[in-house]
Amino acid sequence: MGEILEMVEGYENILVLGCGTCVTVCLSGGEREAAILAGQLRIWGKKEGKNLNVMEHTIQRQCEKEWVDEMRGHVEKADVVLSLACGVGVQLVAEMYEDKAVYPGLNTTFMGYPVEHGTWLENCRGCGNCVLAHTAGVCPITRCAKSLLNGPCGGSQNGKCEISKETECAWQLIYDRLKTKERLEWMNSYQPPRDWSTAGDGGPRKSVKIEEVVD
């Protein structure tokens, strides 16, 4: 919160912009979270004797130009936009409203599903070259601390990873699941060194679906 207060320092008209898709279901940047952050800012402003006008608005998706364009009227009333979208949304809003100060209202952490209500686990790193077919649907790139491709390391103890007792060993999970599927022989298949250029190591990635591109 201290970081956010620093970002909005000196601005009077603040727009807290929620995003209605991924960050909403992840309970981190949707309408409700926008209302909470806006509420905090209003209380802070009043307490500090600042004359703040904190607005809140949530759009369906901050990562698509059409949606971002539709809220032009809201953005124009603001001096600063605090975007509660993931980094993708923050960047598009910043790009489309170049004359406005656009700041991130949250840290985008990872892609994952909730293991229980309120708890998320990282599952996919978007590495661009999926290995799940060989690993019984458990991603060793993401869930193994070393991203090992050919079995566990010596730090695998009682199904847990040596980095933390709470972290499951991805290769233990893969082994157990292959056993269930009666595909244990897959453990012996050798995965050669990977080409990490698809994972972002080759620079920012771009994807074109030529059949979808409109001339």
Binding site: R32, A35, I36, G39, Q40, R42, I43, K46
Partner: peptide, 11 residues
Amino acid sequence: VEINYLLKAFE
């Protein structure tokens, strides 16, 4: 009760 309801009352 939602957190924003609580903040709203203070606001």
